[in-house]
Design a protein around this nucleic acid. Structure first.
Length: 640
RNA sequence: GCCCACGUAGCUCAGUCGGUAGAGCAUUUGCAUGGUAAGCAAAAGGUCACCAGUUCAAUUCUGGUCGUGGGCUCCA
């Protein structure tokens, strides 16, 4: 046997090296720059430490920070560094889990002392110190039983719990100086690899995510191989703050939420209500085009309805308590479906009349626990762009296709390109409907998603108890995902209300029922929309499309004439004739993020023109009044 | 609901180691009549979230309530 092995690199070339050479050494033979940047290496699909010795021929790819795997390793190592620092400062701290996440890392820690934001600075300092000590990070493999002993002796109860649930005979721990942690790895080889880091926040988190368990303290942080990258990330977080819909909602005078009216209850100001109505108008128009009929239903209903629907059983904790009307209990609706079903029940249906597509912008009220409320994104009263489709089983695949296409069309018209699709299947616990129905429905959903050519993930067991569903989530500026669209099968309600139609065989059959919301709720959708556009709405959605400014009092009338002309054309102009300098008024209009500013002075009056400045540009163009109107109308037509 | 932090003028924030508070912007009123990102000046504006307690005295300390923020859990 030769003592040489062959290493295949990503570019297809091969490198002959001595047996037992470390990954680090091999990468050094490729390039010293790469050796410096490497955090770990991939042998096929397996990532290993740089110190890992190679005994067999294999493929090898250096893992650097610019790769997803690289960031994960880097952040995971940073979380160990943080834990190390915490242990030095708080020797009694017990560690739970400390993974890398999409943007950084966290560690869940159980400690006697309550951490304050000032402690974060101390921990950061200690991290810098440990990084400067340039301690070697070493992997150690040992029998699980031995690891249990070690962690038990150290009082690390959470690690012991995890170890007890593992089945591997051998586990690995990583040591850096006096600190060690149960960990699969890989990790960076020395603490000095961790250059620039920042601890961002401290929060509570239940052990294993269950509220029955103890609440631990979670510290979030981020780390980068150089200071510049860290700074630009911090700048990004600042930018995200500027785009926060709660801040923009106030600045642009869109909405407010008051202690006096109640948490999670939104008051729409004129500008916000205008935006909402523009979206609703568009929504209605498109629904008619797509073969929907509109229905309308009340905000409250008798308890009997909610008993039949089952909501009082399975949705009770989200419903507000009943009110007494003539001695009868009534409930505010948390969902629109039972009402739509009652419309269905108002007459008999022939198979020829299906499918029925009934849509309603229905406002529902749900009790949400106080801690989850969040601006417009999580509220207690909201308007769903709801619809229910009643169809024959044979129509179902086509209906799913149509809904999905319609949904993607709507989201794209609003400028969303980044969304994630989840296909949620039958939950393992209680659920209704027989297996064949579930399988058929899941198959239809999956086929439809495939046909639409979008990527999706299967959320195994994530369906509702009453049927499988497709959820489409939109990512906000902070990469948080918000569920907007949902397409759900319902095997429950048709059964409970005994829905039927008469088929060609003259017999009663059970229709399929699909719930769907495309935008989800208008509140949440507008919240996401505000952040998506950073408040700079496209012309077709801007509550004010153009601010008309006069240069001096002499043009006051001309400004009003133009306003009236535009209003007649169905545009949304605003005039600013305040007794302020032009510079002030232009600045104000820019601050309000109005897409066009039109200035009228002596010259423009004489020529029938306006001086037009677009938001984001600092030059203006003089054009005929008609040209400006055409431009705006063109923007609206093309939904720009 | 749970953990932590926070709540001072319409907004953004100072401040008071217990003696009832201040700035900038916004508002109002004068003056200035301005050509594309803040003209000048003055005035007005606060039960320091709310309710208790400790104290001669609470916006400040303690407790509770409501609300907000970051998370956890749950969801459109």
């Amino acid at each position: 046997m030769s003592d040489q092995i062959s290493i295949t690199l990503p570019d297809g070339s091969a490198l002959q090296v001595g047996k037992g050479e470390s990954v680090y050494g091999i990468i050094g033979k490729i390039s010293t720059a790469l050796q410096k940047a490497a955090l770990a290496a991939k042998l096929g699909d397996v990532t290993v430490d740089l110190s890992h010795p190679l005994d067999e021929s294999t493929t090898l790819q250096a893992v650097t920070f610019d790769m997803t795997e690289g960031k994960e390793i880097y952040w995971h190592s940073a979380s160990h560094l943080m834990a190390h620092a915490v242990k030095r400062l708080f020797p009694d701290a017990k560690f739970a889990i400390g993974p890398a996440i999409e943007n950084g890392f966290y560690y869940d820690i159980d400690m006697g002392a309550v951490l304050s934001p000032e402690d974060l600075a101390r921990i950061e300092e200690m991290m810098a110190k440990i990084a400067a000590e340039d301690i070697e990070v070493r992997r150690e493999e040992l029998p699980r039983a031995r690891a249990i002993e070690i962690f038990r002796d150290a009082g690390e109860i959470y690690k012991v719990e995890m170890l007890n649930e593992m089945t591997d005979g051998v586990v690995s721990i990583y040591r850096q100086g006096d600190f060690y942690d149960l960990c699969r790895g890989p990790h960076v080889p020395r603490t000095s690899y961790l250059k620039a880091f920042k601890l961002l926040s401290i929060a509570g988190a239940y052990w294993r995510g269950s509220e029955k368990n103890k609440m631990l303290q979670r510290i979030y942080g981020i780390a980068f191989p150089d200071k510049k990258m860290l700074n630009s990330h911090l700048a990004f977080l600042e930018e995200a703050k500027r785009r926060d819909h709660r801040r923009l909602g106030r600045e642009l005078d869109l909405f407010s939420i008051h202690d006096e009216t109640g948490a999670g209850l939104v008051l729409w100001h004129p500008k916000g209500a205008c935006l909402k109505h523009l979206i609703e108008d568009f929504w209605r128009k498109e629904h008619f085009k797509n073969g929907y009929d509109l229905v309308g239903t009340p905000h409250i209903g008798k308890s009997q309805l909610w008993e039949t629907s089952g909501h009082l059983d399975f949705y009770n904790e989200n419903m507000y308590s009943s009110m007494d009307i003539d001695g009868q209990p009534y409930y505010v609706k948390p969902m629109n479906c039972p009402f739509h079903i009652m419309i269905y029940q108002s007459k008999g249906w022939s198979y020829r009349e299906l499918p029925l597509r009934w849509a309603e912008l229905g406002t529902v009220y749900r009790y949400e626990r106080s801690g989850v409320l969040h601006g417009l994104l999580r509220v207690r009263g909201f308007t769903q762009d709801d619809a229910h489709i009643f169809c024959r089983p044979d129509q179902m695949p086509d209906e799913i296709d149509r809904v999905l296409a319609f949904c993607l069309f709507m989201l794209r018209e609003f400028g969303f390109k980044d969304f994630k699709v989840y296909l949620a299947t039958r939950p393992s616990e209680k659920s209704v409907g027989d297996d064949s129905m579930w399988q058929e429905a899941v198959k239809a959903l999956e086929a439809s998603v495939r046909r639409a050519g979008i990527e999706y993930e299967v959320d195994e067991g994530g369906g509702a108890f009453y049927g499988p569903k497709i959820d489409i989530k939109i990512k906000d500026i902070l990469a948080r995902e918000w569920q907007c669209s949902t397409i759900q099968f319902d095997f429950n309600l048709p059964e409970r209300f005994d829905l039927t139609y008469i088929d060609s065989d003259g017999k009663k059959h059970r229709p399929y029922m699909i719930h769907r919301a495309l935008l989800g709720s208008l509140e949440r959708f507008i919240g996401v929309l505000v952040e998506h556009y950073g408040g700079k709405f496209p012309v077709w959605l801007a509550p004010v499309q153009v601010v008309i400014i006069n240069v001096s009092d002499e043009e006051a009338e001309a400004v009003e004439r133009l306003r009236l002309l535009m209003v007649e054309k169905g545009l949304r102009p605003d005039i600013d004739r305040r007794d302020e300098t032009m510079g002030y008024r232009v600045r104000d209009a820019i601050g309000r993020k109005v897409p066009y500013i039109a200035v009228i002075g002596k010259k423009e009056v004489a020529e029938g023109t306006v001086s037009v400045r677009r938001l984001g540009e600092n030059k203006s163009n003089t054009m005929k009044v008609e040209e400006l109107i055409d431009m705006i109308e063109d923007d609206v037509r093309n939904r720009r």
